[in-house]
Structures are given as C-alpha cells and as structure tokens.
C-alpha cells in the first residue's frame, strides 16, 4: 500500500472533462494501486469502455505495471475494452431465466441481427450482452433495454425492440475504433 498523496503529476491524455472524474476517483483513494478497480469503474462510467490510452494513463497514475492493469481489466466481466453500440440489450442468463427461455432470446437476436454475446451490430447501433443474474428472477426471463429492466420478455418482443433501435431516427454514429486485441498478441516475425 504505497501512498503517494501528492502524486497527480501525470497529465490526462487530453483535456476532455471526463478525465476529471477519473482523477477524482484516484485522488479519493490516495492514488493507491489497490484503487485500480475503482478507477477502472470510473473510466468505464465516463467513457463507456476502457481503451488503451486510458489504461496507459491509469497505469502511470497509480504506478501500476501495465500488464497488471490489462490483466485486471480483462479478468472482470463488467469491464469492456470495446466501445458498445448506441443501444445495449442485456439478456439475463441466470438459472431462472435460463429455464424460462433466455437461450431462445439469445438465439432469436443471433438469427435476426447476427450478433452474439458481447458483440455489436455492424452499423454500431445495437450491442448484445448477457448478465449472470439480474436478481429479477421473479420476472424471468428478464432483459435490460438501455438500462430499463423488462420482465417476462419473449423472442418477438426482443426482436421488435432491437429493430426499432436500428431503424430509429438517431443519427448514425461512427464507432468502429481500433478495438484492443483479445487474443494475446498475434505477431509473426
């Protein structure tokens, strides 16, 4: 537990105001390395995902090895290293939802939109995610549409909702930024 109370010397990657939230989270924890997960939560909340630039910044600020930061970021299911689509649909795959038809929901989305768990449609509009259990077992099967929990959903309802998102009036947002590698480093010499 090395405490570096005065260490805020590392400048954020840009003057984007959202970095202040991240800095505040680190300062609140005295820039200690054990606040890494809290800090990553702050980054993800502010930017939607963790990109290489932010991981590098967090590593330097907390004086943590970069591989450690990357290791922690990829260990936890909650952190995403890829930007999500404009809208997200989270299907609960807890036991109650499973036996009440969650696999059918995923199957329906997969067939209709060609995306699986953690993937985003090519137009960047819709991301599909799964949750281990939302704790809404009384409402199984449950799904979350842009933060709103919906209970007792069926295949048709999910597909309809996602279609509405895709065809909605929202402006097309370019989001296919460089996504971090997911499979070691594939470099052949």
């Amino acid at each position: 537990m090395a405490t570096n109370p005065r260490q805020s010397a590392v400048d954020p990657p840009s003057d984007d105001k959202r970095w202040r939230i991240v800095q505040a989270a680190m300062r609140r924890n005295g820039f200690r390395r054990d606040a890494l997960i809290e800090t990553l939560h702050a980054v993800q909340e502010s930017f939607g995902y963790l990109d290489e630039e932010s991981l590098r910044y967090v590593a330097r600020s907390l004086r943590a090895p970069m591989s450690h930061v990357y290791g922690v970021s990829t260990f936890y299911h909650f952190f995403s290293l890829k930007p999500a689509g404009e809208h997200t649909c989270v299907v609960c795959t807890g036991t109650a939802c499973y036996i009440k038809g969650a696999p059918g929901l995923l199957d329906a989305v997969g067939k209709e939109f060609h995306i699986g768990d953690g993937e985003t449609t090519e137009d960047g509009k819709v991301s599909l995610l799964t949750a281990r259990c939302l704790g809404s077992c009384g409402l199984a099967p449950a799904a979350v549409f842009d933060g709103q929990v919906a209970g007792k959903v069926n295949r048709e309802a999910v597909v309809e909702r996602l279609h509405a998102w895709q065809n909605g009036p929202a402006a097309v947002k370019a989001s296919p930024e460089s996504s971090p590698e997911s499979e070691g480093s594939a470099v052949y010499a």
Partner: peptide, 26 residues
C-alpha cells in the same frame, strides 16, 4: 464500499480479498 466487477469467483474469501486489493480475483 468496494465494487465488484462481475466475477463469480470473488464470492470466495481469498479471491474477494484479492479483488479489494485491486488485483485479479484469484
């Protein structure tokens, strides 16, 4: 408060401790 980040194994005492210490929850 310390927030978990989606790892079932962190229900295990020693993994939970690792997670509070800011490490991989092993």
């Amino acid at each position: 408060i310390r927030l978990g980040a989606g790892a079932f194994v962190c229900g295990e005492e020693t993994a939970l401790i690792a997670s509070i210490e800011g490490k991989r929850g092993q």
